[in-house]
Design a protein around this nucleic acid. Structure first.
Length: 561
RNA sequence: UGGGGAUUAGUCCAGUGGUAGGACGCCUGACUCUGGAUCAGGAAGCGGAGGUUCGAACCCUCCAUCCCCAGCCA
């Protein structure tokens, strides 16, 4: 047993302790509380896996609750996509689908209660004035001149706000705490604001909306959430979270913070993802280069790979940036087990096998997955003209190059050995456009009776059976590990990888692949894992490269140039 | 300069008084009809200084560095 099997993260440690001490009577209720104002990304996946995972492990439940307290930026499109993504990741909230907006009436009552106990007041200060009165990091704030209104006046004003008697910005409801508190969140925070905007669920029923701080903890409380897990930046809000629950004297959930996920070569803030979208750097929320769940799904990621990744990175309280190589490792690890192997030539080079009969077509038997014999075998066609990868031929081979070059012999995977006799070049550019080769008929199946060593094995597709396809080769969205590493005056977008998408329009795939359905995944032998894009049709198939195979030759070649 | 957090290999995470461990990445080698996978081996770390102790990554003190907070966003 390894250490990883026995050690638990700090969160599970806390919960185990709570169960031991009976803090919550052994109950474990968590929640995943997205704001429906954007698509979920892999950072959210960490939270989803954490909350649902913990509930599962401790025999509890995890709620899905939309934190929809700001109608000006939330939409149904997002609540739908979020549910789809959580479900796709493999989690089930059962009956426990909630919305903070379900609690608007209750929240309003809580506010009245706070006013009645003299702990909240209606303030007439403008937004600018509130900011001035708040003070600064090093100076205490000043009390609002409206802070000492009578309970009756506060009540009547707040009811007026609720009735829609005032315009946006005319009043706010504020908690009465301490304008000198070193924690800025405690300097009489606004808890209700006037927003005359239709809400995606309550429509125009409410002209006022609670702020996050006045909605989140209370929603947890209403749902009897035991462990309210959130990211580190809410740490400063915990005293407020606790204050409301204490003042209101209602069920007290426990907020616990963890460090959000960062990954090299990408960005994970909603703001930046939207900027990528609006700037046309990507085409959609589900662009396969986006770190969104929908983007990763379209790219060909599996839910299992994502969940394994979340397990592997664990969770702690220190800022972290996980190497994207770990994500890709968990992906390959999963895909290696379940992807059928096929042959596809991305950048074709024509090969004419001069001693192979003109109209002969042979069936070649190929194994679907050496990792899993139960996946069986298939036939591919072989004939006189085949395509191999341009990369698999060099007129002047560098050291350690096992592939094809003039006079050299290589194996065409599962088929025959071929030897290159001559090359045909474009008269103008000098580019090699065709290889003239001969094959050894005694090497059918890819082995020779004399047992001679052939180091190189190429994948290939016969011209007669080839399926023409478009292959979209994706790479990291940013060239640098940390997109924020820029020259003075530079911008994170300066690091966007101009080659994050390279479209191969003339790919040749083995027969049958035009009938693969969107979402189907394959390993293109020697190249990587690919999946059928949603743009694909049998007439014009489109594949996405999910992730390349590890390529020690490429690494060697790179370090020797 | 206020408050709240954090600091263990390149990266992520364990270790909470008794020889510092795992994973990814990196480097070697073996094997191989995928330069894939697999297998074997290796390099690489407790931010610093004091103190307590037989013994400190862990306890105490001081220092340094990094992150978060001044939305009527979440």
């Amino acid at each position: 047993m390894t250490q990883a099997d026995t050690s638990v993260d700090f969160l599970r440690g806390i919960i185990a302790d709570d169960n031991r001490t009976g803090k919550f009577g052994g109950r474990v209720v968590t929640r995943f509380p997205p704001e429906p104002n954007g698509y979920l990304h892999i950072g959210h996946a960490k939270s989803v896996c954490l909350n649902f995972g913990i509930a599962e492990e401790f025999g509890g439940v995890c709620h899905l609750r939309f934190d929809d307290t700001n109608p000006s930026r939330e939409e149904m499109e997002y609540v739908n996509s979020i549910q789809e993504d959580v479900r796709w990741l493999g989690f089930d909230w059962g009956e426990n689908l909630f919305f903070a907006s379900d609690y608007f009436d209750q929240l309003y009552e809580y506010a009245i209660k706070l006013i009645e106990s003299g702990k909240a007041f209606v303030c007439d200060l403008s937004a600018d004035e509130v900011r001035d009165y708040r003070g600064s990091l090093v100076e205490p704030g000043k009390e609002s001149p409206y802070r000492n209104r009578s309970i009756e006046e506060n009540l009547s004003l707040f009811r007026g706000m609720r009735a829609g008697d005032f315009g946006e910005g005319e009043h706010t409801l504020r908690a009465k705490i301490d304008m000198a508190a070193p924690n800025l969140n405690l300097r009489d925070p606004v808890i209700y604001r006037i927003l005359k905007q239709a809400h995606h669920r309550t429509r125009d029923e409410w002209p006022i909306y609670p702020m996050y701080d006045f909605a989140h903890g209370q929603s947890d409380s209403i749902e009897h959430v035991t462990h309210s897990v959130c990211t580190l930046e809410f740490e400063d809000h915990r005293p407020l979270y606790d204050w409301f629950l204490d003042e209101l004297d209602i069920y007290h959930s426990q907020q616990i913070e963890f460090a959000r996920l960062n990954i090299t070569h990408t960005v994970l803030s909603k703001r930046r993802l939207i900027e990528l979208l609006n700037g046309g750097y990507v085409t959609a929320w589900d662009d396969p280069r986006m770190p969104t769940i929908s983007g990763l799904r379209r790219r060909g990621y599996t839910p299992e790979a994502l969940r394994n990744f979340c397990d592997r990175i664990s969770v702690a309280r220190r800022d972290n940036t996980v190497d994207i190589a770990l994500l890709e490792h968990t992906l390959r690890d999963d895909l290696n087990q379940k992807s059928p192997r096929v042959m596809g030539v991305l950048d074709p080079l024509k090969v004419v096998i001069e001693n192979y009969p003109e109209d002969k077509v042979e069936d070649i038997i190929s194994t679907n997955n050496p990792e899993d014999p139960s996946m069986g075998e298939r036939n591919v066609s072989f004939s006189r003209v085949v395509y191999i990868e341009k990369d698999d031929f060099r007129e002047i081979p560098p050291p350690k190059f096992y592939r094809l070059s003039p006079g050299k012999e290589v194996r065409l995977k599962d088929a025959y050995y071929i030897t290159c006799n001559s090359v045909v070049k474009d008269e103008i550019t000098g580019e090699v456009v065709e290889l003239r080769c001969t094959y050894d008929p005694d090497t059918f199946g890819g082995t020779s009776a004399d047992g001679r060593k052939v180091r190189g094995t190429s994948h290939w597709v016969s011209e007669e059976s080839a399926v023409d396809a478009e292959v979209r080769v994706y790479d990291h969205l940013f060239t640098t590990e940390y997109p924020d590493d820029v020259e003075d005056g530079g911008d994170w977008k300066d690091n966007i990888n101009p080659d994050s998408l390279v479209v191969m329009k003339n790919a040749k795939l083995e027969r049958g692949l035009n009938h693969a359905k969107p979402g189907e995944r394959f390993q293109f032998l020697r190249q990587g894992y690919f999946c059928v894009d949603k743009d694909s049709t049998p007439e014009s198939p489109v594949f996405n490269r999910t992730v390349p195979l590890r390529d020690t030759w490429a690494r060697f070649a790179r370090s020797n140039t």
